[in-house]
Nucleic acid binder design. Structure first.
Lengths: 207, 207
DNA sequence: GCTTTAATCAAACGTTCGTTCAAATATAAT
DNA sequence: ATTATATTTGAACGAACGTTTGATTAAAGC
């Protein structure tokens, strides 16, 4: 029971901060608002996380642990790279859709002006790229061409993440309902864009 | 002279805020820091912009005015759509490269939890999409397919904008120098990705 | 020269910020 | 039951927040 409540208070802080950071950004949220949302005393934040920035570090790590796993789950050396790419994109869309707040907090809400945060983010991003780069190479891109490699890996996550960040705005611009059917087509479309785009690029590289 | 200095103080505030917002986000910057950077008294911010949020509105408008112009400049009904797409991407990359702080402030630093800001952003985004959508339709996508249309337009800007936001991190992950040569290849690569990707999607739509 | 308007200034308003600390309560181990 | 450890509390710290005010200086119109 004590072990339960301990975890519960800690977890409530984490959940509240994730939700608030995703909506208002790290700097836009105060510790009092986090504490109030989590229904804990303000001091508990420093007690469990050694300060506001400590919460963010855990959020970044939690996201990238899952993010890395999601990418790796889609990659199978015994399957054709096109199928792997579809799996990765499908997994990625599903993951960010079901963990939107975590993803937004760990991607868009980050204060990159804090060196501590920028460094940690860089480490985790490079880790994620390792998985993607191998897959992109199997699709025909030259793995030593850092320009192409850096673009494709970054484009993959930025498109999907930005879609969720601007979803409320897109809802206003177009007249779309973001239901299961939408994301089925969304996954297909992004997959087609990347697979056709990459194989097209690879073909041009031959010339 | 008085007319000069008047504009200069106003412009210095705008420039300082743009630079600071782009680095730390809107909520991460205080009016005192803006005033100090611009070398003006704090009161001048309310005097010229009716408060901190007034600066951001001007930044959003300034960016989207230029952004819209840049897109339209690349579109020419008498040229093939592939060539237009290349021009738009080239213009876009060049524009954001030469106005990185303005773009970051108007895209990534936005506090979308402020309804006032979210609405204004939505209006200007929908305006920009109008131009792109016509071009994408000429490349073969069904203009009534809102899913594909919404994805391609959003993907275009999010890839490029996110590249500049995460440039310092990518510099750490890969070992790239972001010089003229890089952006020449960058423009080619993004163009190839989109043109091949879109035409590939269009071909599949026929089935 | 005098009046009107625009621009700049220092100072203060009341809030909120992140963090700390000692005291109090609850749980675990002995 | 008592000690030790973990959790929670309320209060306070100085600093920074965005905004407003009234006075002061500069410029323009007449």
């Amino acid at each position: 029971m004590s072990e339960m409540q301990k975890k519960e208070a800690r977890q409530r802080i984490l959940d509240a901060a994730t939700s608030l950071f995703s909506k208002k950004g790290y700097a836009g949220v105060g510790v009092r608002e986090i504490a109030k949302t989590a229904d804990v005393n303000i001091s508990m934040i420093s007690y469990y996380f050694q300060g506001k920035v400590g919460i963010l570090k855990e959020i970044i790590d939690a996201f990238h642990d899952a993010y890395h796993r999601v990418i790796m789950d889609g990659i199978d050396e015994h399957k054709p790279p096109e199928e792997c790419m579809r799996s990765v994109i499908r997994n990625l869309v599903h993951f960010i859709r079901t963990h939107t707040e975590l993803a937004m907090a760990a991607i868009h809400a980050l204060p990159l002006d804090i060196p501590e945060i920028a460094e940690r983010k860089a480490e985790r991003v490079s880790e994620a790229f390792e998985g993607i780069n191998g897959l992109v190479a199997r699709l025909g891109l030259d793995p030593h061409d850092v320009v192409q490699m850096s673009i494709v890996g970054q484009a993959l996550i930025s498109i999907i993440a930005t879609h969720f960040r601007l979803r409320s705005i897109q809802e206003h611009v177009f007249d779309i309902e973001f239901d299961d059917a939408f994301y089925e087509r969304y996954t297909e479309t992004i997959s087609a864009l990347f697979i056709d785009g990459i194989t097209g690029m690879a073909a041009e590289n031959q010339n």
